[in-house]
Amino acid sequence: MDIIVCVKRVPDTETRVRITESGNSIESDGVKYIMSPYDEFALEAALRTKEESGKGEVRVLTLGDESSKETLRGALAVGADAAILLQGTVTVDGLATAKVLAAELEKHDPPLVLFGVRSGDVDQQQVGPMVATLLGRPCASNVSDFNLDNDTIVCRREVEGGVEVVELDLPAVVTITKGEFEPRYASLKGIMAAKKKPLEVKDAELVESKLTIDRLEYPPERAQGRIVGEGADAVPELVRALREEANAL
């Protein structure tokens, strides 16, 4: 089955964030960029699906700047068959991103489109369900595992208090959370093979963003805490402090 996985290039989760002088973005020098962690799970899910069925193509799609090519090559190196870069500026407005992606997906109309449940930078948890809504497709979000059939997909969704099992008619959209899909590493052979795989680059037809970051701020400093003591003997003082100072019990 043909699958398209939407992936995003984001700063490594270990990165130290430095806010630029203008105050509404972060410094990019010296920052290592990676494929958003949940998108790695989604890509892994797609690759395993292809391997199990022995047929179909896995393509990766991104909206991003020129440097996103590196992320797409990484996806080709672990086994994706082809990649598409829609070159353009990404904003915090997930609907603007969703519209660009949906327009491209419509041209390919794959039976299954996978997303990460949330991106590692703006973490809006919205692009997947928005794309599904724009395309009029059913969508299951926060899925840790699934089973595909000819015309349906059965998904395990992580929800409050448990797991919900839902069945969707294909074509469908699924957003992936961490579950069974521990991502693989690229082999040297994979990296070499990736150089010959198709990576199509075209200009994105951007739409206006209606959500803007006015200013970034560092997290409020937490008030200096204190060590109340060592071992079990410190417990009474802890409980007193929680009760009287923090008003937390």
Binding site: T13, V17, L211, I213, D214, L216, E217
Partner: peptide, 14 residues
């Protein structure tokens, strides 16, 4: 929060 809570974004709407 953005960037895993390492910054907070003030968001304006249109």
């Amino acid at each position: 929060p953005v960037y895993g809570g390492k910054a907070f974004a003030r968001i304006k709407f249109q």
